[in-house]
Every structure is written in C-alpha cells, then in structure tokens.
Design a protein around this nucleic acid. Structure first.
Lengths: 198, 198
DNA sequence: TTGAGTACGTGAAATTTATCACATACTCTT
DNA sequence: AAGAGTATGTGATAAATTTCACGTACTCAA
C-alpha cells in the first residue's frame, strides 16, 4: 500500500485524474490483479470501466496507512544511522515528526542534531508520556536493544522500528518491525554465489 | 538463513558445540519445524537425536550465503545515509568491503570518509571494472536512481541494494533488493491506526 | 544389549498468497 | 439508444508456504 501511495503522489503531481490498475502495475511492478485484490480488501475504491480517482485513492490510502494524522516519534541511539534518520526528510513528508532523540553516551547527550537536543535514555519514559509518543525508532547497538525496548514498552510505546540486528521480545500488542541490513546484503551475496555455480 | 548464522555466532561465542532446532527456535522466534525445513532445503546438516554442530552449520551457512569469500562493494550516494553505511562495521564483519564511494555532488568529491576518497559518478564504470566490484549499494536520491543503476548494469554489476524509494528497472540477471524505510514506518502507523478503531 | 529419551528429515495436511478469467458496470461515439 | 471499449471486483483455481506428526537414527544409562 505504501508503494501505491507513493506512486499516486507522482501521478497527482503530473496532473492525472484517474488511474487504472494496469497503469499502476506498469509503474509499481506488481500485477494488475494483485493491485485490485489489495485495494478491494479495504473497500470499493474504484469505478468499473473507469479506474481509481487519483486524489480519492490517495486519501483512502493515507487513512488506511494512518498517515492522515501526525505521529510523534522517539529515536533512540544517535550513532551514524540515527543521525542519518534524524536528517532524513522522508519521514516528515509522511507525517512523522521525530519529537525526541535519546542516547546513553554522555558525550552525545546535550548536543543538538537536526534541531533536536539529545537526551539521556533515563529520561525516556517521562518524555514519552509528556510528548504523547507512540512510536519509536531504535538504532542502538544490539546489546542495548532488549533493555531499551523493555523501557519503551513500560513507557507505553506500542510500535517500534528496530534497526538493531537482534530479534526482540515484546508483549502481545506491541508491534515490532525489524530492518536488518545484513540480511539484505547476504541475500544478494547468496544470489551472486548461486550464479557462480550454475 | 542470515538470522540463523548470526545466532550461531552467538552460540559459538558461548562455547556451545551442538544445537537443536528447538533451541534455535527459542532464540530466533521461528518455529522448530520451520527451521528444520529451511536447513533441510540445502542439505542434511544435522544428526538425528543429536542436533546440528554449531561450527559445522556455521560453515555451511556461510557458504550458502556466499559470505565465505570477500565481496567488493561500491557505494553510490554519500548523503547522510551513505555516510552511515560507510561507517557501519557490520558489513566488514560479514565479509563485505566497501571498496569505492561515489557521488555527483562536486563538493563531496575528493573528500575522505571512513578512509575512502569520494569519486565522481563519471568514474564509476571504470572503477567497477578495475576493482572487480560485483555488488553496489545505492543511497542516491530517488530521481537519480534509475540513471545510476543503468550505468551500474552497463559496468557489469550483478546485484544492487537500493535505498532510494523507487522501484528500479534492471535486466534479467541483475538482482535488486529494495530497502524502503517509509514502507516500514507506514506499516507501523497502519497497525497503530487499526488498534485505535477496534 | 536393551530401553528410554532426544531430535532430525519429510510426507501429508492446512493455511496463506497470488493468478486467472469473467460477470458487472461505466463511458463515449455514432 | 445502442454498441464498442474499458476496467473493476471477485469467485475459482493454482501456487507457495507453514504446520503437523511421525518414521528414522542417534546417545546414554543400566
């Protein structure tokens, strides 16, 4: 759905009013049938014989993805990757505001990055409650990850995007998405190796 | 398989000789049956009644994933994310050496980052051939992505890890993995929204 | 040497996901 | 007003993936 929303953004910018699943298929690479099935899962957004209204569908997708409202996000771990994400404009465009940044390293605490002052992890729970943060991005080292997520859960966070290369335990009802760069690269090296042999 | 390999690394460090699918299941979160099926797809690595040899299985997985040899990697796009990846030690540990970094921005060309001198994209093809690079990591803006991948393909690159939020076209035989951060975050905000309603 | 315990590998079943194909519904031209 | 053209939504089907359950094979103790 994210991909569809992004594609619709481009189409809207070029002034298209209506779009078919066939056209979406061309641009996104998914099959037309797949796209229709995906969209029909959430409602009847299209008109037969016509297609989907670009603006209408954008609104629907925004609502489905939950990006029709602003989310406050906490970022924990201001290493290289954390800094990159702080500076990443894509989040803001999608309605995600990084409202606070935390780190355990005393040398980093107090410094200002992309307009945010880095705070100590000890203040995490208090600040999460204060700012009404419901979503966290974790770019901590693997060793610290489980400890940090425990405090996040205790503070009432319900969704976490985890970059630490470790599977985290969290109670039912806390959604965790893992982004693991080594998995991606290893998948590529695997397919390169395979081709060497055949 | 990547996850299994990483887990085995931890087990090896703590001195374990042999490991069962049940134990792997506890640590990785996959079911034991799933793990056995995955591993059996590639060969008979375990011994019935005993389990898998930690060191033996590590070797097998390294070979399967292709990380038993060193890969030279090119990084294109030295923005915030590119810099973060250059500094990321995980790649090196897995046998990936970032051998060259490229950017189109004249202000960045010539600067040194993590021991590498940034080169202009115009030199890409020549350097790829010279260094025998087969794998590229793209952290360019979305607009430049398709153009860059075309030159990469022309230069003989066969696998690309793409961070630009755009689906790229490449000929058969060139493997592309996409990492799209907005998809991950939108998935989380979607599940948060769902819970609001129910 | 035998029996109890352990744990892999794998057919079979169940579940999930993707594709096909077409009835339905809309538009536009003549 | 009718017919040709377009494109959705969805049953039916196919493919892929996951889970179940158990035969087989190994270890260890008595």
């Amino acid at each position: 759905m994210s991909t569809y929303l992004r594609t619709l953004g481009l189409e809207a910018a070029s002034g298209t009013q209506s779009i078919s699943s066939a056209r979406l298929s061309e641009v996104t690479g998914f099959t037309a049938a797949q796209i229709r099935r995906d969209l029909a899962n959430f409602g009847h957004f299209g008109r037969r014989g016509v297609g989907y209204s670009v603006e209408g569908l954008r609104q629907e997708l925004r609502a489905i993805l939950g990006v029709d409202i602003e989310w406050s996000v906490a970022l924990i771990g201001v290493g290289n990757l954390g800094k990159a994400l702080l500076a990443y404009k894509g989040f803001n465009q999608m309605g995600f505001t990084i409202a606070a940044a935390f780190d355990n390293d005393q040398r980093k605490v107090g410094s200002t990055l992309s307009g945010l002052t880095v705070e100590p992890v000890s203040k995490l729970a208090a600040r999460v409650r204060e700012l009404g943060i419901q979503l966290a991005i974790m770019t901590t080292p693997a060793e610290a990850a489980q400890e940090v997520i425990d405090s996040l859960v205790a503070a009432g966070i319900r969704a976490v995007l985890n970059f630490a290369p470790r599977r985290l335990r969290a109670p039912e009802g806390v959604q965790i998405s893992n982004v693991d760069l080594t998995i991606e690269v290893e998948y590529l090296s695997h397919s390169l190796s395979q081709r060497r042999l055949s």
